[in-house]
């Protein structure tokens, strides 16, 4: 066991865990930040996507010991009032069905638009293909990403 000071959503959290513990389980089991989901544990489904220094990262594959001072953003910290343009677009298109994968989808989409504010269909498909939606909301996700891109309020 070891103590880590983690910078998550603008706050510092101290946790005492085994160094091999993936950030996913630190978030879910130790900090009760359960918006980040467990789907496969092998970086194949994208349900656990968070931002590390702004980059979309699969939290099930990142041991807590490797994170150091890097800033983590989870779905809970993506915006203060749930009004990030991607979240708003998701609501406008009423994207979710079961909703389980959507936090991961939103985090990947937000990072995409951050680096590429006007993605083409191909850009969206290439970036989002790491996030599985078992309910099949892909068509709406694509539409929502385009709406968020058009909203122009992305910094």
């Amino acid at each position: 066991m070891a103590t880590y000071e983690l910078k998550i959503n603008g706050n510092t959290h101290s946790v005492d865990v085994d160094p091999s513990t993936p950030i996913l389980w630190v978030l879910r089991d130790h900090l009760q930040l359960v918006g980040t989901k467990f789907g496969c544990g092998i970086s194949q489904c994208g349900a656990c996507t968070i931002h590390v220094e702004g980059s979309a990262t699969r939290s099930c594959q990142i041991p807590v010991s490797s994170i150091g001072n890097k800033k983590i953003t989870t779905i809970e910290g993506l915006s203060k009032n749930g009004d990030h343009p991607v979240q708003q677009a998701w609501l406008e298109h009423d994207v979710p069905q079961c909703g389980y994968c959507q936090a991961g989808q939103i985090m990947t989409a937000a990072a995409l638009l951050d680096s590429n504010p006007n993605p083409t269909d191909e850009d969206i498909e290439a970036t989002m293909s790491g996030n599985i939606c078992r309910c099949g909301t892909y068509t709406r996700i694509k539409a929502a990403i385009k709406t968020a891109a058009k909203s122009g309020s992305l910094s």
Binding site: G35, T36, L91, A103
Partner: peptide, 15 residues
Amino acid sequence: KNVDGKKIVTGKPLF
């Protein structure tokens, strides 16, 4: 709209 929509997109405990 989905009555749980806001909770889903903000990562609230639902599941």
